[in-house]
Design a protein around this nucleic acid. Sequence first.
DNA 1: CGTGCTATTGAAAGCTTTCAAGAATGGTGG
DNA 2: CCACCATTCTTGAAAGCTTTCAATAGCACG
Lengths: 244, 244
Amino acid sequence: MAIAKTRDTCAGCPIRHRAVCAYCDADELAMLERIKSYATIAPGSPIFFAREPMRHVATVVTGAAVLSRTLEDGRRQISGLMLPSDFIGRPWRDTISYDVTALSEVVLCRFDRKAFETILRDTPHVAERLLSMTLDDLDAARDWSVVLGRMAARERVSAFLLTLARRLGTPDPKVPERVTFDLPLTREAIADALGLTLETASRQMSALRRDGVIETEGRTRVVVPDLLRLQEEAQDDDDGGELG
Amino acid sequence: MAIAKTRDTCAGCPIRHRAVCAYCDADELAMLERIKSYATIAPGSPIFFAREPMRHVATVVTGAAVLSRTLEDGRRQISGLMLPSDFIGRPWRDTISYDVTALSEVVLCRFDRKAFETILRDTPHVAERLLSMTLDDLDAARDWSVVLGRMAARERVSAFLLTLARRLGTPDPKVPERVTFDLPLTREAIADALGLTLETASRQMSALRRDGVIETEGRTRVVVPDLLRLQEEAQDDDDGGELG
DNA sequence: CGTGCTATTGAAAGCTTTCAAGAATGGTGG
DNA sequence: CCACCATTCTTGAAAGCTTTCAATAGCACG
């Protein structure tokens, strides 16, 4: 795990307004700045291990990581995708119950856990923001249970692609309904996120491609020609406005 | 929705030490006491509806409720079971994305949402406790994704019964491994929580009974003769200590 | 002690998984 | 720069588990 202390300032941080520090004023930011350090994690490398002492909490600055749990017989479930601005870790507890693994190269803005706990007590804006983010994550996790519990394979893949399209997608400047993004996961990881086998995940991607719901370039590039069509496939009757 | 204002004091509250008010000192408790009101909900009645304005947040004092989402075609997923001391609601947001329904008669300790938001800002102990509870709920929701995504029907039912046994079970005074509890859900609701059909849920209950993992009395009473056996069925390699 | 809702059980159908083989990708070294 | 190699992905066919459809049994309330 390469660690690079930098002099990067919070002011220039690309996720300054979305991360756990979003509500901070200048003084609070200065406090965080004193205890933060950056770490760069190589693709495929572990960030935290389940049940092992956890000295830091962190915000994802760039890259992507997954939270996963593996049963004794090897069955694996990915229970969260961590993207820039997401918060990793469990204040006031020594361990977490899942592994955190980098998918791509990940840059973390880390805080010593104990120091962060002090910050939480002293700077209400950090605590309030973390509570708000955690409530959102909880809602998202509960929403996802519908996908895992009730949706067919095609719907699951569609729902997953829709989530990625919303968070990672770049709209076509001329056709805003047309969105492009790069999959940060392999087919196997997609399957592990969706509770499917990699063959089923692959088959459904192929089916969506055949039916014109998506287009693909290489292994990772995905183009969604019509986001509304994908929403229908994903049984997403959300009328657009995802609140933050 | 019958509403009964009472003079019940927080001091005598059965969940005083586990709910969102757990960390409060006397002054803080007095503040909460001023804005709280009790409500009694009949079995089967809605507590909150998804997407409808939510004027209150609340703690479950007695009884059981579920969080659920229903797709347009009627498929339903229960994403949370709310038992005494659990917190319901979403501060700083007008709506929630799931329905909350009482399973049994539920007594709520309610707070006006706006007033509660003020409390959150003014009493750090409430905010800290709510953050801690929400982080726990998030971990639980992520743990549950393994059940929904990767477990077979028999394992799902076992995992669910194990969860209930841990939260609701009364150990046999002579044989602590023997635990008894009452199911607060119908077979259909169990199925909706597990992403199964009610027939499959029922069949797996029967199979577990045949195999001696559980005993049943009437529709609701469940006896687990050996909690360790149930843990094995549920693929739960947890060595006991659920932290709170 | 009926009556209606809930639960159980059976049999066939369907969707996903499993097992297996072949194709495409992208990185490496000659 | 191109060929080769390992990995990842795709596709096929059979097996398996859950669902669906259907009927019976059992509990609980009036």
